[in-house]
Design a protein around this nucleic acid. Structure first.
Length: 501
RNA sequence: GGUAUCGUGGCCGAGUGGCUAGGCACAGCUCUGCAAAAGCUGCUACAGCGGUUCGAAUCCGCUCGAUACCUCCA
């Protein structure tokens, strides 16, 4: 079997994965900023790294998965007037930042649960680690790589770059940054334009504020990840993940801070997922093209023709290699929905069929025509996962198994013949990859025991009607069920199956 | 302007030198009371131009086009 290779953004090539501490993996993923609702674009990293987490766990590693919640900084609820922040209204009417944080954190957890992502081992919040962040900033100042001005603290990029490779991760050259940095407000007090904030003094109207050696203020964006990653994973850990748009400046700055503070580069393998685009454009607030997850699940958005289930979205994302851009459209999502249904229908039947049906059994002296190809398709799955988590190829192989499974199910005369061992191997391997590694769940929601019982009654009535060639009754049952969103199918041997539409 | 990535059939997308990706859509056939599903078959592409090579979607160069980042961003 092949060994796991990961594309390391820092060196721009695939490297064989070796954990720093044998048997253990430290995984850090930049989490959401909970000042607003998560959108489809946010779903990608969390689903991508959920699969990474699942696969590493399957490989036998004890993984500590840390994903932060960014709940400090500038906060403003969408649509809410900024003046609220400084109004002299009663406390209850004023914007309470933690109320927003709680609301959007809950919503985020709800969406992650629907996507069937496994919760991280630790989900630290920025506000819960102010002490650690202040400690880290003090260490950086003590080392001489940061300076305080007017209650704010900035990282001295120029000094750092003199002896370290600032820009290595993002492929940037410091001089270029000097010339191309945008004009922003509040930049005057920095020594150099490329310096970034470790701590910002809070203006009087700023509600989120903490005491620090430099006065009241709040931490810079980059320091929180460095502080929390260091605290829970150590000065040097295995994998750091996040969206490509975070590569610069966020991750570059993380490297600089942690390197000065801890005396070592923090991360062994950097992984960056690509963006989700709409009509070729990145999904983002500034482009005004975001589809929120709640809108996606409800279908309530001008760009959406219908609602799409969380599993459809998960499948849609996994059908693409995580380093490629993924273009969103109704057509693409619809295709994903249909494809997933086909895969999961075959999969569900296979899981309900513990023993190889007679019809597919190889007759005495017969040839196991399907054994070799099925075995090959199955044996390639770990190779694909080991090749930088190529879930697209894993799914492609699974789709090649679908006709094999359906052939057995339909007892078609030219059904693929295979040995009992191959059948069992197919069953257990698919369960492992579909459910445990890719995290795709059969859409069994709503199929309560009572509904199953009721369906059995209706199926019985319809079978009777069909036996009597009473097509009127037969069709009435099927059509009325369809109107209720239940699709009834006649199988080859007179049996019937049903699915919720 | 700087840096980087990408351009694959109607659509989405895998693929770093030779072998069918896969899904969806579409067409035909089989099965079927009808339907749906399923099975089989077909549709077979790599932006353009040069180069390297026995051989290139894959390597190199140029051109055209697109996107991302350049301190809000998954």
């Amino acid at each position: 079997m092949s060994s796991l290779k990961i594309y390391n953004s820092a060196v721009r090539e695939k490297e064989v994965f070796e954990s720093i501490v044998p048997g253990h993996v430290g995984l850090y993923v930049c989490g959401p900023t909970v000042s607003g609702e998560s959108h489809l674009g946010h779903a990608r990293p969390y689903i991508t790294f959920d699969v990474v987490y699942r696969y590493l766990t399957y490989l036998g590693y004890k993984v500590r998965y840390v994903r932060n919640i960014t709940d400090a900084g500038h906060f403003e609820e969408e649509g809410r007037e900024a003046e609220d922040k400084i109004s002299k209204k009663a406390v209850l009417e004023m914007l309470e930042p933690m109320e927003l944080v709680q609301k959007y954190t809950n919503l985020f957890h709800w969406a992650m649960d629907r996507f069937n992502t496994i919760p991280p081992s630790i989900e630290p919040t920025a506000t819960g680690h102010i002490v650690e962040q202040i400690g880290m900033i003090e260490a950086i100042i003590a080392a001489g790589y940061a300076y305080e001005i007017n209650g704010s603290v900035y990282f001295d990029v120029k000094k750092y770059a003199a002896t370290h490779d600032y820009g290595k991760l993002s492929g940037r050259i410091l001089e270029d940054l000097l010339n191309t940095t945008r004009e922003l407000e509040g930049q005057e007090e920095k020594r150099n334009r490329e310096d970034f904030a470790l701590w910002k003094a809070a203006p009087p109207e700023h509600i989120m504020r903490w005491k620090s050696p430099w006065g009241e203020g709040f931490p810079g964006w980059h320091i929180e990840c460095s502080a929390m990653a260091t605290k829970y994973l150590g000065a040097r850990f295995d994998i750091h993940g996040g969206g490509m748009d975070l590569q610069f400046p966020h991750h570059e700055s993380e490297i600089a801070q942690s390197t000065i503070c801890n005396g070592t580069a923090p991360v062994r393998y950097w992984m960056h997922n690509n963006m989700i685009t709409i009509n070729g454009r990145k999904m983002g607030k500034s482009y005004n093209n975001v589809v929120k997850l709640t809108e996606l699940f409800s279908g309530d958005h001008p760009l959406l023709e219908k609602a799409y289930s969380p599993m459809t979205v998960r499948f849609f994302i996994l059908q693409t290699q995580y380093r490629s851009t993924l273009d969103f459209s109704n057509e693409a999502l619809l295709a994903a929905e249909k494809g997933l249904k086909r895969l999961m229908d075959a999969y569900a039947w296979l899981q309900e069929t513990p023993r190889m049906p007679e019809a597919a059994r190889v007759p005495a002296g017969g040839v196991e025509t399907a054994d070799a190809s099925v075995a090959r398709l199955l044996s390639e799955l770990p190779d694909f996962m080991n090749d930088d988590f190529n879930t697209a190829k894993v799914l492609a192989n699974m789709f090649e198994l679908v006709p094999v499974i359906n052939g057995i199910k339909d007892k078609s005369p030219d059904a693929a013949l295979m040995s009992e061992e191959t059948f069992e191997s197919m069953r257990s391997t698919l369960k492992l990859y579909v459910e445990d590694i890719l995290g795709l769940l059969p859409d069994g929601s709503g199929e309560g025991e009572k509904l199953k019982g009721v369906m059995q009654v209706l199926i019985g009535l319809r079978q009777q009607a069909r036996a009597n060639k009473d097509w009127v009754t037969s069709d009435a049952i099927r059509n009325q069920l369809a109107a209720q969103g239940i699709l009834l199918k006649d199988e080859k041997d007179g049996a019937m199956s049903w699915t919720l539409a």
